[in-house]
Design a protein around this nucleic acid. Sequence first.
DNA 1: AAGATCGACAACCGCTGCTTT
DNA 2: CAAAGCAGCGGTTGTCGATCT
Length: 304
Amino acid sequence: MGRSPCCSKDGMNRGAWTAKEDKILIEYIKVHGEGKWRNLPKRAGLKRCGKSCRLRWLNYLRPDIKRANITQDEEDLIIRLHKLLGNRWSLIAGRLPGRTDNEIKNYWNTNIGKKVQGHPNNSTNQSKRNPSQSMGQSLFGQPPSPTIGSHVVRTKTSRCTKVFINAEPQETQHLHNKPVVAPLPTVKDTVIDSTAVISDQLSGLPEFIFNEDNNQSDPMMDFEIEKFLSDVLDSELAPVCEFDIGVVKGGDTSSNTTEQCSYSSPNSDQTVVCTEDMLRNSDLGSMATALDPEVDWLQDKREK
DNA sequence: AAGATCGACAACCGCTGCTTT
DNA sequence: CAAAGCAGCGGTTGTCGATCT
């Protein structure tokens, strides 16, 4: 598919932005709002390409940008999120108010990356040595580590938003030896009911988000895996959970890839890998079961 | 004092996926 | 359904100031 270039380079300004250009861009966005970047330069009278305007605005001119140095807390959060999400800077930035993906990426490359690089058994270290492994190949053929040291190895963004669910009823699943729901016709039911059981014991658990349009009779539904993980991060489990998302190949000879979410419990030896197949088979009960040690751990913590 | 090197960060580039036509 | 348009993402490069030799 042919595509015209983003913008002509003829007569365009390049390089650092001047104060005058910044002012023009700010004034224009104040009046017209963000978006329609392609036409913005022409309308605003800027000799810049739309991409450049967008970047300048998002990374530098936006009023909510924090210009202060990154704090230790923020650095810790970046490291933690990087463990979880890999080089998905926009997702990481989304959890750091006032910080941009570019800023975090630069900070990582110039500060954290070096620190982490010196640390043995680190996936970031590995991916620097051999970037091709960072596409999920280190997961290939070997299960995620059951220890806390399990890390994300994916660098290429891919999405798992739609999962085809087998609508056939399944056996009763148990959580804490209690019946969760019977039958379990859909992933939606599994997740919601499993969560409900845990929620009886623990507030602040992730809110699992599904497309409201879906119902039990609709086998096609949205499972927002990134939202799922994001909600987990917001929950009280955040301090103890280790989640990975990875894209793995089906086998040595297979070129098929599948998305998976693995969960490693630091309070037990248990690791649950939640694959598309598991989702298809409504096997999220296993994942919920994996949360048991954390629930117990948090309860103990609360009682103390 | 001057050139070389390094580090930080802004900006660019190529690609991808979603939406529109 | 395919092509084109567009926004957004992550990797890379360029630039500039600080430090070193």
